[in-house]
C-alpha cells in the first residue's frame, strides 16, 4: 500500500477516559509509523484485552485484537507465517505480566522479531481498577478496598532475564521520546520490549502524571550510559547494569533504552538454519497447490518424500531356510 500521505489514524472513535496515558501512546505510535513510512498492509498491531486492547482499532494498519494475555502467541504465529510483516504487540500490565506472563517470558527465549509495548498503569482499568502485577506492595489505589498484598514485578528486569534483546522504558506523556523509542524498537532485529509508564486518570491516583512528571529522567542524558552489547563479552556486565538501573524507582525514575544486544540470533535466523529456504520461502508465500487444485505433492513426489515408510512388496515364493 502506498504509504505516502497515508493517514495512520482510523475513523473509530477513541473511547478512552479523557487524559488517559493511552492517548500519548497512541499518538507516539501514529507518529512512529508515519516516520518509518510503514506500509499499513504489511504492518500488524496485535493486542490483548482491556483499554490497551482497543488500540489497533484506532490505527489504520492491520489490527488483531485478541484474548486476555495471548497477544504474544497470536503475534508469533503471524510473524512466523509471514516474516515480512512488521508486528507490534500492545498489552496492559495485567495482560502481559499477569495472565500472559508465560508468553512474555517465552518470547524472550525466542528472540523473535516482534515489538512488545507494555501499557503499564498499575491497575486493571476496564474491570474497575484492581491491582495489577506492577502495582507495588501495600499500595492502595482509589478503587481498591484495601492495600495491595502482592509485590510488583520489575518488567525491565524480567524482560532482560527472559532474553529480550532490546529493552527500554518510555513515558506516555513524553511523546517525542516515546516515539523515538518505538522507532528504535521496530528497527531492532529481535524481541523488543518497551515498558511504557501510563497514568490511569480514573483508577490510579498514585502513579499520576504529577507523580511521573517530577521523577522521570532520560537515561541518555548521562553521556556514559551505553546500553548496547556489541560483543558477547559485554553481555553480562551490561545486563547487570541495566537490571541495577531498573531498580531505581523512588525519587527518580529512568526512561530510555536500558539494554540492547545485537549479538544473539533471532528466531527467524534459527529457523532459517534448519529450514534453509526460510524466511524467503515461508508459510504465507509458499505454494501448497497446483492450478488444478491438486497438492504440490503428487504420487511420484509422495514416494520420494516418504520413501522411508514405504515397503515395496516382494512376494516371491519364500525360501524356507534361514541360511
Amino acid at each position: 500500500m502506498e504509504s505516502k500521505g497515508v493517514s495512520y489514524k482510523s475513523s473509530v472513535w477513541v473511547d478512552w477516559c479523557p487524559g488517559c496515558g493511552n492517548f500519548g501512546i497512541l499518538t507516539a505510535v501514529l507518529k512512529a509509523f508515519a516516520e518509518l513510512k510503514l506500509d499499513p498492509s504489511e504492518t500488524v498491531i496485535v493486542s490483548g484485552i482491556g483499554c490497551s486492547g482497543k488500540l489497533p482499532h484506532f490505527v489504520n494498519v492491520n489490527g488483531v485484537h485478541t484474548l486476555h494475555g495471548r497477544a504474544i502467541p497470536f503475534a508469533m504465529g503471524i510473524k512466523l507465517a509471514n516474516p515480512e510483516l512488521t508486528v507490534v504487540v500492545h498489552g496492559g500490565d495485567g495482560d502481559l505480566l499477569g495472565i500472559g506472563a508465560g508468553h512474555f517470558v517465552a518470547l524472550g527465549r525466542r528472540n523473535l522479531d516482534i515489538v512488545v509495548a507494555l501499557h503499564n498503569n498499575g491497575v486493571y482499568g476496564l474491570t474497575k481498577g484492581q491491582a495489577s502485577p506492577t502495582l507495588p506492595l501495600d499500595t492502595k489505589t482509589k478503587a481498591l478496598p484495601k492495600p495491595n498484598i502482592q509485590q510488583a514485578i520489575n518488567p525491565i528486569a524480567l524482560a532482560i532475564a527472559s532474553g529480550y534483546t532490546f529493552v527500554a522504558r518510555g513515558y506516555a506523556f513524553e511523546g517525542e521520546h516515546l516515539k523515538n523509542i518505538i522507532i528504535e524498537a521496530i528497527k531492532h532485529k529481535g524481541a523488543a520490549f518497551i515498558d511504557i509508564l501510563q497514568p490511569c486518570v480514573t483508577f490510579n491516583d498514585i502513579f499520576t502524571s504529577e507523580y511521573y512528571g517530577k521523577r522521570v529522567y532520560r537515561l541518555e542524558k548521562d553521556q556514559s550510559w551505553d546500553p548496547v552489547v556489541r560483543d558477547p563479552g559485554e553481555r553480562v556486565p551490561k545486563m547487570l547494569k541495566a537490571i541495577e538501573r531498573s531498580m531505581e524507582w523512588s525519587e527518580r525514575i529512568p526512561i530510555g533504552v536500558f539494554y540492547v544486544d545485537n549479538t544473539i540470533s533471532t528466531f527467524e535466523e534459527r529457523l532459517s538454519s534448519r529450514l534453509k529456504v526460510y524466511p524467503e520461502i515461508n508459510p504465507a508465500n509458499s505454494s501448497i497447490m497446483t492450478e488444478e487444485s491438486k497438492s504440490v505433492i503428487d504420487n511420484a513426489k509422495f514416494k520420494k518424500i516418504f520413501g522411508d515408510l514405504i515397503v515395496s512388496v516382494s512376494k516371491r515364493t519364500q525360501g524356507r531356510s534361514p541360511q
Binding site: V46, R70, P283, A284
Partner: peptide
C-alpha cells in the same frame, strides 16, 4: 494456549 493461538495467528497470515 500458545499452541492454539499462534496457530490462529499463522492462519490469519494465510498459512
Amino acid at each position: 494456549i500458545a499452541a492454539i493461538n499462534s496457530a490462529i495467528g499463522a492462519a490469519l497470515a494465510g498459512a
